[in-house]
Simulated assay, not measured.
Amino acid sequence: MSGPSGGAGRRRGRGGRRTPMSEINVTPLVDVMLVLLIIFMVTAPLLASAVPVNLPDSRAKPIDTEEQDPIQLSIKGDDTLYIGEEEVRETELPARLEAIAAADANSENPRQIMLRADKSLDYGRVMRVMGELNRAGLTRIALVTTGSETDR
């Protein structure tokens, strides 16, 4: 028999002989990954538009967008124009819109323009931009608002 000095039958602590752990508990990993997935799913739509615009409220139903990504045209409260996240000067706007219309001319399904205008802007200012869109041949325009739950 082997004694307390060591050997094959030596006991370790209270639990007796310990065998190496051959299984990894993946439950905590799955829990963390699901929480991260939920966080990304919630924050991804909020990060879609990087130009901060104070949008007006509306009770209109949301529209379905097609398979192509729409073009974001934003007008901030300080009258700054953006196409996507790129700032555009007022004088460059007609040429940029005509280039977008020319790129969509060959497509059967032209891309939609999502017009995001600050609610503090003058109505005439927004109409001038919509007039430029119409003049360029871009007629699929959607006005972006925030949803309102209250009845008016």
Rank of each mutant, 00 (worst) to 15 (best):
R96Q: 11
A102C: 04
T65E: 07
L115Y: 00
D122Q: 12
E66D: 14
D122T: 11
Q72V: 13
A95Q: 15
R128W: 03
R135M: 10
D57N: 10
Y123G: 14
A101E: 01
N134W: 07
A136N: 04
M127S: 14
P94V: 03
A101H: 04
T91M: 11
R96W: 03
G77C: 08
T65R: 12
E87K: 10
A136L: 03
V129D: 06
S58Y: 02
R135P: 04
R135Q: 11
K119T: 12
T80M: 09
Q72H: 12
T65P: 02
D122S: 14
E66A: 15
D79I: 08
R135S: 15
E92T: 09
E66C: 06
S107T: 00
L115F: 08
S107P: 04
K61T: 13
R116M: 08
E108K: 12
D64P: 03
G84L: 03
R111Y: 01
R116V: 06
L81M: 04
A60W: 00
D64G: 13
E132F: 09
P70G: 09
L73T: 03
E90T: 08
G77L: 05
R125E: 09
D78R: 06
K61C: 01
A99L: 05
E90H: 11
P70C: 00
S58A: 13
E108Y: 07
A102T: 11
R125A: 10
A101P: 03
E66R: 14
S58P: 04
L73V: 12
E86F: 10
R128S: 10
E98G: 05
I100Q: 07
L115N: 01
I113R: 02
L97N: 06
V126E: 02
R59A: 04
E90R: 10
K61G: 09
E98W: 02
L73H: 01
A99G: 09
A95E: 15
T65S: 05
M114G: 03
P110I: 04
I75E: 02
A95K: 14
V129C: 01
I63Y: 06
R96C: 01
N106S: 15
P62G: 00
A117M: 09
M130V: 12
Y123A: 15
M114E: 09
E98D: 14
M114L: 15
R59F: 01
L97D: 05
P70V: 00
D122M: 09
L121M: 04
P70W: 07
E87Y: 05
I100R: 00
P70M: 03
I71T: 09
S107L: 14
A136M: 05
A136H: 07
Y123N: 15
V129E: 01
E92Q: 15
D79S: 11
G124P: 06
M130P: 00
D69G: 04
V129G: 10
T80A: 15
E132S: 13
E92K: 14
R59V: 10
I83P: 03
G131H: 05
S74P: 02
L93C: 04
Y82G: 01
A95C: 00
